[in-house]
Write a protein that binds this DNA or RNA. Structure first.
Lengths: 187, 187
DNA sequence: GTCTATATTTAGATAGAC
DNA sequence: GTCTATCTAAATATAGAC
């Protein structure tokens, strides 16, 4: 694993949290993945809580970058379909571990307050992005459609993970493509 | 909390797992809720793993009963809309703790094998029920629609929980009602 | 800045009296 | 069947040498 020790710890924690959950991941696990001695973790992160916060911030950075990458598409309809194609293409990952951000939100919602806030800000990134696309289509129900799209993705990620079947989210991708095509330019 | 000690332990564990997560819930917590001494838990459940299995079985019983209750409706369209009304009516619970079955599946998917299997059987109950309704409508894409409906519910439960806003799942309920109304009798 | 050794806490699990 | 007291293992966190 490349990068400075802090970067390695954050990336290692992000991967381990996704694969095994936050609660089940020990700092010893993270230290081993990052190839950093256990005791040294505390030089970079005062508590496990602080490490979790850093991981959420790292997720936010990755999601923002991914969404920015979709803005190269010509129009809002193409951008929405590129979004769908992106997550449908990650079916194997969803089948094994679920959506990285969704599973994190699900677990941390049951924990202390400031982590909940950070999670909700993370989940708001793709919703706000999707709403802007629906607004560009002239939809007055853009907020509702944006929530429905992200919920469809999150829900099908959960089913894909629960049944270990990547085909589920791929089939949903095709269905959402047809749905996006069927939307009128204004509502 | 009423019932025999075993029933109290299962119900207490089910509630605590939903509110705080399985990993974060200690047997001491469960014992306190059930008003049973800590050491006595092991008389009824050899391990925490066994208690989790019992809780999943209890969920399966409750879900089956709830779905059976919907079969009093006249036709498949009415049954599907009664299903939607049922979960949209639980918005306050979803906002605080998410869907009981969904959060359980999300957490336990990251754990040992036989719990994953039990969770997938639990999640299959509403999907199979919904597929039968869509089949009764003559839809050849009943399996796809059933997965889409449950995914919409699960995903919107996650968003409702993440943002702590019951209105999200209520709005989705209305949207799904219109969707069910719009489906042709055959596909 | 880095790392080893260890302290502290807490959870799951057990032994055994009643 | 019931309950108290306790064991053991593991995880977070710290102290302090280098």
């Amino acid at each position: 694993m490349a990068g400075g020790k802090r970067e390695r710890l954050v990336e290692g924690a992000r991967l381990a949290f996704h694969e095994n959950g936050v609660e089940a991941t020990t700092l010893a696990d993270v230290a081993a993945i990052a190839e950093v001695p256990v005791g040294n973790v505390y030089y970079y992160f005062k508590t496990k809580h602080a490490l979790v916060e850093a991981v959420i911030a790292d997720h936010a950075r990755l999601v923002s970058e991914a969404l920015d990458g979709l803005d190269g598409q010509r129009g809002p309809r193409e951008r929405l379909k590129a979004f769908v194609a992106a997550f449908a293409g990650n079916g194997a990952m969803a089948a094994r571990f679920g959506c990285p951000q969704g599973t994190l939100c699900s677990e941390l919602d049951k924990q202390s307050g400031d982590l909940r806030v950070a999670c909700s800000e993370l989940m708001r990134l793709p919703i706000d992005w999707a709403r802007r696309q629906f607004e560009a289509l002239g939809r007055t129900d853009a907020d509702e459609l944006a929530h429905a799209l992200i919920a469809a993705y999150q829900g099908m990620s959960l089913l894909t993970n629960t049944f270990g079947d990547p085909a589920l989210i791929q089939r949903e991708g095709k269905r959402l493509d047809r749905w996006i095509d069927s939307l009128a330019e204004t509502s």
